[in-house]
Design a protein around this nucleic acid. Structure first.
Lengths: 213, 213
DNA sequence: TGCGAACGATACGGTTCGTCTCGTCCAAGA
DNA sequence: TCTTGGACGAGACGAACCGTATCGTTCGCA
């Protein structure tokens, strides 16, 4: 009923229309560069402001935390420069050969995971998300789950084609080859190679138990 | 040739024999309690020292960082009631029914992951390890890999029994059901239930592709 | 053209860091 | 048993960042 009350007495709610686009971009660039060059723990809000040539208040006015700055900066990086071939929200190819399609996508993911411009910010956000549950859910919703849904679509298509058991849950099925790669990447539990991801697809599709019995 | 030089001019290398066992235990207890109660980011070295009734220098003398304190404290917690029936390096049961054995162990793991006394420190260390690679490798080597090797042993036994394809790599195979659970736990990408882990085992053992063709 | 909000810059108090320095206590060696 | 020196509890210290407040200044909108 009551239309709206200002969230906090001391926060007069800034008007986005008057926001400086130049400062926002400078902050994104500074945040991403610092995370890659200095590492996340040594990336400070004061450091971002100084490098961006911006007052601290400009950051505190628009973002609640350093993690949120980096999250937006990374989303901007991942979803923005594209035009030509957007890398993230593009569907998984469907050539009719499920195993080949999955292997191709996972190989591309391997390359991406090894690019420091992707690795450093993404890993930093994941780390913060482990301990800050609200941020973690944001990370999953905005960065992880959209990619996983592409697998869901491809697996559904495979089910219709009879290449996948019709009774299984695609959202769980994809985890058999995606999660192992994710864990090796995040926790350095093993090397990440094309051979490894190819193996994951084979193991997952055809099972660990002997097929002839 | 040169026998030994002090690592740092200002570090006279403390002698472990004179170390206070009482202080060490108090520091372990304080660190674990604070992480559970206040969360990792709000757990400070000063806070640990105050709660343990200990001087800050006593912590800085024996540990290089807050993460290392927590790591030792957690290792002490997990592996300490030793001698009798240590809970972590105990083998996976081998009843001859591979699927049942794996499901049982994963169900026990589900319970453990939901215990705050395990979840909070373990998650904090994992988070720090994502961004501090040296600590991450320590986390993997001391906490994660020993448990994974138990799966390797059980899977090897299954291979000998003919319950598992003889050509596959057990260290990779185990990831098909362990990594999905790990990711759901760490990143909150989905609910963690017995039904879920049971499903993982079934999917992994019998494969995603139709078995009759 | 004028108003006001966002801006860059910087001062401020507060917290935690990691180091250093006390005086005390206690265990190894004489 | 006594001496001695190193670890101990306590806390002062400067540095780094935090998040907030307050300057003029700039610039978008009416």
């Amino acid at each position: 009923m009551a239309s709206q009350q200002p969230a906090r007495p001391a926060a007069p709610a800034p008007r986005p229309t008057r926001r400086s686009e130049k400062s926002r971009r400078a902050i994104y660039d500074a945040a991403l560069a610092l995370v890659v060059e200095a590492g996340y723990p040594r990336t400070t809000i004061e450091g971002i402001a100084a490098r961006a040539g911006v007052g601290k208040q400009t950051i505190y006015r628009w973002w609640p935390s350093k993690a949120e700055v980096l999250m937006e900066a990374f989303l901007d990086l991942a979803g923005h420069p594209p035009r030509d071939a957007a890398q993230e929200p593009s569907a998984i190819p469907d050539t009719g050969d499920l195993a080949a399609d999955l292997k191709a996508v996972l190989r591309a993911t391997v390359d991406e995971l090894k690019d420091p411009r992707f690795d450093a910010p993404s890993r930093a956000l994941a780390a913060e998300g482990l301990v800050d549950e609200a941020l973690g859910r944001q990370y999953v919703a905005k960065l992880l789950e959209p990619s996983l849904q592409l697998y869901v679509q491809r697996l559904r298509s495979a089910q219709e084609a009879g290449d996948l058991r019709p009774d299984l849950d695609p959202r769980i099925a994809l985890e058999l080859f995606v999660s192992p790669l994710a864990q090796r990447w995040l926790q350095h539990t093993g090397p990440i190679t094309y051979a490894y991801t190819d193996t994951l697809v084979d193991y997952a599709l055809y099972g660990l138990a002997p097929r002839s019995r």
